[in-house]
Simulated scan of single mutants.
Amino acid sequence: MATRRGFIGSASGISTAALLGYSASPSAADSPLTDTTSAAAASATQQQAKDSIFAVNAGMRSNYATLKAELVKHLSPVIVVQNDAKGGRFTLVTANGQESVNPVAETFELAKSIAHVPLGCFSVIASYLADKIPNLPNADRIDPHDLLLVAFNDDKSTAWIEPLQAYAATLTTARKNLPAAGLPAALTASCGNILDAALKFINASVQAKVFDMKSFEDFSGSVYPDIRVNMEHAAQAQIKGVQDTMKTWRAKVGEAAWADLYCVVLSQWTTSVLNQNTIIIKDCMNAAKVATHLIDLPGLETPKDPIFTALDNLARIVQDNIAAEMVFPKDTKVADALKGKEDLLSDEILIQLGGSGAVTTQSAPTYNTLSEGMCPVRK
C-alpha cells in the first residue's frame, strides 16, 4: 500500500495537471487562433460562455472528489471517536481493517445519569416559567429574550404536573435500587443526595401547584457539591478507559506508525471546545503533531455513517495540506488558509469591508492554545 509520504514523493515527479486528472493541452504557440475558431467563439451565446466557465469548476470538483475517494483507502493509522452517553466509541482504522470498542467503564454513564437529574427536571418545567427574571444572584447572566423564547407556555398552567410526576416515579425507582448498583460509597452518597433533593422539589411543587425560577435554583444549587462528586467519578472512569485503549493500540500499530497517527473526534458543537475525549487523547499522541493530527469535527447530529464521515473529512484535510503548498507556493498566508478553517476569500472580504485583512477572533482556550503543562480545566 502506498504510504502518504510515498504518494507525495511520486506526485513530485509529475505535473500538477496530470496529478489532478487533466491531460496536457497544446500551448497557444502550437495552436494559433484561426479565423474559424474566432468565428466559433464569436457565435457562442453569453449563457454558453458562462456555462463553459462553470464547467471548469465542475471539472475541478469532480477531480477533487475522485482524489479524495481514493485517498480515503490509504488513511492509516486513524482513530475515530464518536462521543456518546457511554463515554465514547473508539474505532482504530489501519491497513488491516477496523476494530471498535467502548472503553469507558459503566461508572461513567451511571454517575452522569444521576448528575443530569436537575436538567431533567428543568426540561419539564422550563416552558412554564414566568418570562420575568426574579432577583437571583445570576440574574444579569440570563438573557431576557432567551428566557422569553424558552418560557413559551402559560406560567399559570399546571400542565407540567403530570410529566413531572412521571419523572418523579423514575427517580423514585432509581433511589430505591441505588444501594444495589455496587457504586463506590462516595458516589452512592452523592447520587442519593441528588435524587432525594429532586424528589423533595417535585413533591413541594406539585403540592403547591406552582414553582418559579427561585425555587428551582434553590434545589439545583443545593446539589451542586454532589454533582461535582459525580463528575469526579465519571472523569476518572473515562480517563482510565481511554488511556488503556490508546496504550493497547499503540503497541499494536508500532511506534513508527503511531508517530503519524490521526485522531478524528466527532462531537456536537456544544462540546467541541475542550471536548473531554480530545483532552485525554492529546497526551497519548505524538506531541509534535497534536496541533495538526488531532481533529475535532463538530456537527449538529450524529452522522449515519460516522466512520466514513470522519475519514472523508480527514481525506479532505490531508489532500488540502498538500494542495495548499503546491497550488499557492508563493503565498504562505493563503496556503495556510486552504490548510486551515479560513475561507480563501476571508482576508479579501475583510479588506474590502474596511478591516485589516487579519482575522482576530477571541475564542475559548483549546488544547492547542494553552501554555505547556497548564491544566485546561480551571477550578
Rank of each mutant, 00 (worst) to 15 (best):
residue 250 R to A: 07
residue 113 S to V: 01
residue 366 T to F: 03
residue 100 S to I: 00
residue 244 D to S: 15
residue 54 F to C: 01
residue 4 R to L: 14
residue 241 G to S: 13
residue 69 A to I: 01
residue 358 A to V: 14
residue 178 L to P: 09
residue 32 P to G: 04
residue 153 N to G: 02
residue 303 P to S: 07
residue 36 T to L: 12
residue 271 T to N: 10
residue 198 A to V: 05
residue 93 V to P: 04
residue 121 C to F: 00
residue 378 R to E: 12
residue 362 Q to W: 11
residue 231 M to R: 09
residue 142 I to F: 13
residue 252 K to G: 05
residue 263 C to L: 05
residue 292 T to Q: 07
residue 125 I to W: 10
residue 365 P to K: 01
residue 229 V to T: 15
residue 253 V to M: 01
residue 259 A to R: 14
residue 229 V to W: 05
residue 176 K to D: 14
residue 96 N to D: 11
residue 143 D to G: 04
residue 222 S to G: 02
residue 345 L to P: 02
residue 316 R to L: 12
residue 266 L to G: 02
residue 186 A to K: 13
residue 195 L to R: 00
residue 297 L to H: 02
residue 285 M to G: 04
residue 300 L to S: 04
residue 374 M to Q: 12
residue 224 Y to A: 10
residue 138 N to W: 13
residue 212 D to E: 00
residue 301 E to S: 09
residue 55 A to S: 09
residue 212 D to L: 00
residue 7 F to D: 08
residue 253 V to C: 01
residue 113 S to I: 01
residue 105 A to L: 12
residue 7 F to M: 13
residue 159 A to S: 07
residue 373 G to Y: 06
residue 58 A to C: 04
residue 224 Y to R: 09
residue 159 A to E: 12
residue 193 N to I: 04
residue 235 A to N: 10
residue 195 L to A: 00
residue 166 A to S: 12
residue 58 A to Q: 12
residue 366 T to G: 15
residue 126 A to D: 07
residue 349 I to H: 07
residue 181 A to P: 03
residue 197 A to I: 02
residue 300 L to W: 01
residue 156 K to Y: 02
residue 185 A to F: 11
residue 202 I to H: 05
residue 307 I to T: 15
residue 338 L to W: 15
residue 4 R to N: 02
residue 135 N to G: 02
residue 286 N to A: 05
residue 307 I to G: 07
residue 200 K to Q: 13
residue 180 A to V: 06
residue 38 S to L: 15
residue 145 H to E: 15
residue 123 S to V: 03
residue 327 V to W: 08
residue 138 N to T: 06
residue 118 P to D: 10
residue 109 E to M: 05
residue 10 S to C: 05
residue 256 A to V: 08
residue 4 R to C: 01
residue 245 T to N: 11
residue 24 A to D: 15
residue 181 A to W: 15
residue 264 V to F: 07
residue 282 K to W: 10
residue 80 V to P: 00
residue 33 L to E: 08
